[in-house]
Design a protein around this nucleic acid. Structure first.
Length: 833
RNA sequence: GGGCAUGUGGUGGAAUGGUAGACACGCUAGUCUUAGGAACUAGUGCGCAAGCGUGGGAGUUCGAGUCUCUUCAUGCCCACCA
């Protein structure tokens, strides 16, 4: 065996062998239990970055560990390959996005292989290939048939720089999630998926996701934004038969209404405006329309509004109050109209103060005897007792919510209402590089879905990428005109493509049956492999991809395509990879190129390091010294083994015969403790950082043990023990340092790949210490430590403690109040005086 | 404004309510070397010491980094959602 560790040589060799032997292929039929380990698939942007390396290494180690534990592991990879960067590159360089994408995939595939990842490449999935997007289109049609895909005219988020609309989830702080430019509002007719129909299920089923972090679950719950309240309908005084409905979560404050606000975009706003107010209202609305999302969302903005001139009547009190329009009412939420109770809502309070609208107190704190509206400094939004509220006076406001709503129900002017913040998912994109929406517009029949047998609707290639202000797809001379699938007459195709998040909402299902050309996947196979047992990826998808995928799964279940209702059983959201405390980015110039690390240290060092310093969920600070440290450690392990092998001290045919010498017994114990600890650390939340510290501890222990021996005096027993320890270490490390372990394994004389081996097992009796350090405390403070036999019982431990000279002196002359014994660990003597 | 995380040596981080700082990085000495940024050995929370130490303050407990309350700081998510 070579004395020095040459990672690149070893790694290239084994990568070739694994490829030639198809070592990581997963059969569908196996008697072993299944385990589906999944990384979020990459966008083929050009090169892997360290975030990828971290993500895929974590999943790879999990996959290999599970395989060694006897699971039939599915560990696939694919490409989220539709999307704007390819199209932009095409426009810039006049290239073909398909070619650009293919080249990136080829390069990144090479990098993934260099990392030694155990993917089943036969199941590779690429979303921009017709054999994939055919099924994306097919699934769209299933949703369409179910009434879950529909087209409507709506105010949508428009990103001018990307030249396309965006879903709500893709607008971050009023800016585009991709390019960061300010998002505008536009009125367009667009395709939506009815995700709102699943709002309640998506919320409820979060409880089923025991293996998800609470942070992600609360983010989703907040995004869905369920609230419970009431709808009240108010008659308009000036217009017979016209009503304004409002949604409120505070029906208990209904007697305190002093005005009502409708959004500038409210559908009946023109009817509600009197001729005298028309001009001011028109101006206000025009202004609101011009405003960008950013301006509207600005937190320090002063509220503005104008009166409409009309009035509503409060059915509870008979009081009249004026109607206003103000942009703090949102047309998309609730009914687009708000009942304003300035005394008990901070926003209404601000508005009322600014425009001198009246205040009326209807909730008082339980302690207060009276409450003066004129002197209010801010809205009272806490709980309390109803006042000025007729028959509800004296009632607790929490009870009044129900009672008051009930009165509205009985009176026919209101109802109980549950409201969600979640909006339908806008999936149309005015872009080229995506899956075409399989819809045609027939001159006679209107909107018609393409026939399933005509799929895929191929993305045209005869397009001009140099056009500005419109989608390149519209320049295709052959794409637009087609025959109606129903009547055969003239029709035109939908020119929009689908949001790429549609493609990524089902890719993990396709892995179950990646090559199927008859169906999107076989139902039995998808039911067998799914749900994913462990999903690993970035927290940035907490809402977007993960919510869409959950919706897709439920919708496809209802379409009868599959039989489960949650796609991802366990989710690990890995932290970011930082350098010098901030996120790696090209603009900051603090990126680390994986290729350079492979070249200088090898993939095993990269894998070891990226797992070593932080638990997976936390951010990880990349340091060059850390990489160096890991490389040195691997050299140290290599030297330990090569030395032993070359001196004939290690062999694969070892046998441990008890009893052993004291030192050998200790080493065996250390190995068993390591096996137990490492197994538990991986099983328990994948704490790879402590796993790696245990690799080091075990290595240190073996070195220390061998340092005590003179190699010439090595007995057969020593050789056996040494062999066992080294063999165990190499095996325990094999999921992480995949190449080095494989190389050593063969150097030890094994024929089979180490990755086909079973995971190490420990013997509970051997993992037990023979001596324990008894901690003796007085009044909870550590005062002494005594070595005692492992088998000592509680009474004996107490005696040891009291008899220790140190303790004897300290408790001398004091009264022992009580003594607490923690078996095999600690004695605490409580004294007084 | 609301929600969720996280606060431990010079640094990354360990620690089923029971020895705080495992394992590393860094640093300091030394050994071997022509030399070393290689390898090995010893040391390394603070304090001269008694002791003190897990952001601050309270509490529960024989015992709190860990549980409860409160407060501060940082990060992330959501945000005029009625």
């Amino acid at each position: 065996m070579k004395e020095a560790y040459f990672p690149q040589e070893i790694e290239t060799k084994w990568q070739h062998t694994w490829e030639e032997t198809n070592a990581f292929h997963t059969p569908d039929d196996s008697t072993k239990p299944k385990y589906f380990a999944l990384s979020m698939f990459p966008y083929p942007s050009g090169k892997l970055h360290m975030g990828h390396v971290r993500n895929y290494t974590i999943t790879d180690v999990i996959a290999r560990f599970k395989k060694m534990q006897g699971f039939n592991v599915l560990h696939p990879i694919g490409w989220d390959s539709f999307g704007l960067p390819a199209e932009n590159a095409a426009m810039k360089h006049g290239a073909d996005p398909a070619k650009w994408t293919d080249e990136n995939i080829a390069y990144m595939t090479k990098q993934l292989k260099m990392l030694g990842l155990s993917y089943d490449w036969e199941r590779e999935v690429t979303t921009c290939k017709p054999e994939y997007y055919k099924w994306t289109q097919w699934l769209f049609l299933q949703l369409y048939k179910k009434g879950l895909a529909y087209k409507k005219e709506a105010a949508v988020n428009w990103c001018n720089s990307c030249g396309t609309v965006l879903a709500n989830e893709q607008v971050i702080d009023g800016k585009c999630w991709r390019c960061d430019s300010v998002v505008e509002k536009k009125y367009l007719s667009q395709w939506f998926f009815k995700i709102t129909e699943y709002a309640e299920q998506l919320l409820q089923d979060l409880d089923k996701l025991q293996g998800w972090g609470d942070n992600v679950k609360t983010m989703q719950a907040n995004w869905i934004g369920k609230s419970q309240g009431a709808i009240f309908r108010f008659k308009v005084k000036e217009i017979e038969g016209l009503e304004v409905p409002v949604y409120t979560t505070r029906p208990d404050t209904v007697h305190g209404i002093t005005y009502l606000v409708v959004a500038p975009e409210y559908k009946d706003i023109e009817k509600l405006t009197t001729p005298e107010n028309k001009q001011a209202v028109e101006e206000y609305r025009a202004n609101a329309r011009k405003m960008t999302e950013i301006e509207r969302l600005s937190t320090d903005r002063v509220k503005t509004g104008v009166p409409l001139g009309t009035h509503c009547i409060n059915p509870f009190t008979g009081e009249e109050f004026p109607l206003w329009t103000a942009d703090y009412a949102l047309v998309e939420y609730g009914t687009g109209a708000v009942m304003a109770v300035p005394t008990h809502d901070t926003r209404d309070f601000d508005f009322a103060k600014k425009y001198n609208l009246p205040l009326k107190v209807v909730i008082a704190p339980e302690s207060a005897s009276s409450y003066d509206a004129d002197n209010l400094k801010e809205a009272y939004t806490e709980e309390g007792i109803l006042v000025n509220s007729n028959e509800f006076n004296g009632m607790k406001n929490t009870e009044a919510k129900k009672a008051i709503t009930q009165k509205a129900v009985d009176g026919g002017f209101g109802e109980f209402k549950t409201q969600y913040r979640l909006r339908d998912w806008l999936i149309s994109r005015q872009r080229y590089w995506g899956a075409p929406i399989p819809i045609v517009y027939c001159d006679k029949c209107g909107i018609v879905p393409e026939k399933e047998e005509n799929l895929p609707v191929m993305l045209p290639t005869d397009v001009d990428f140099s056009v500005v202000g419109k989608s390149p797809i519209t320049t295709s001379p052959t794409f637009k005109d087609t025959a109606c699938p129903v009547c055969g007459g003239h029709a035109t195709r939908e020119m929009d493509t689908m949001d790429t998040f549609v493609c990524s909402s089902w890719y993990y299902m396709r892995y179950a049956d990646a090559k199927n050309s008859e169906k999107c996947f076989d139902k039995d196979l998808v039911n067998h492999w799914l749900p994913v047992d462990q999903y690993v990826g970035g927290i940035e998808h907490a809402i977007l991809h993960l919510l869409y995928s959950r919706f897709f799964t439920k919708a496809l279940r209802d379409c009868g395509v599959l039989d489960f209702d949650e796609p991802f059983k366990n989710l690990l959201t890995q932290g970011m990879v930082l350098k010098d405390g901030s996120k790696m980015s090209k603009s900051k110039g603090n990126t680390v190129d994986p290729d350079e690390i492979f070249e200088n240290y090898g993939a095993d060092t990269a894998r070891l390091f990226i797992l070593s310093d932080s638990p997976p969920a936390r951010d990880f600070d990349w340091s060059d010294a850390g990489v160096e440290g890991c490389y040195k450690f691997l050299n140290r392990v290599w030297r330990l083994v090569s030395d032993g092998v070359n001196k004939g001290l290690i062999s694969k045919d070892y046998k441990i015969d008890f009893p052993l010498s004291r030192e050998n017994d200790d080493l065996i114990r250390t190995v068993h403790i390591a096996i137990k600890g490492i197994t538990n650390d991986i099983s328990n939340d994948f704490q790879f950082n402590t796993v790696i510290s245990k690799y080091r501890e075990l290595t240190n222990a073996i070195y220390e043990w061998s340092g005590k021996k003179n190699e010439k005096s090595f007995t057969d027993e020593d050789k056996n023990v040494f062999s066992f320890a080294v063999t165990s270490l190499v095996k325990l490390m094999s999921p992480v340092t995949v190449h080095m372990s494989e190389e050593i394994w063969h150097e030890l004389g094994y024929e089979r790949s180490i990755h086909e081996e079973n995971w190490c097992e420990w013997d509970e009796n051997l993992a037990k210490a023979s001596k324990i350090t008894l901690v003796v405390q007085i009044n909870g403070k550590v005062k002494d430590k005594i070595e005692v036999d492992e088998g000592a019982n509680d009474e004996e431990l107490k005696q040891f403690a009291i008899l220790s000279p140190k303790i004897k002196e300290l408790i001398n002359g004091k009264e022992i109040v009580k003594t607490i014994v923690v078996p095999k660990k600690l004695v605490n003597i409580v004294v007084r005086g």
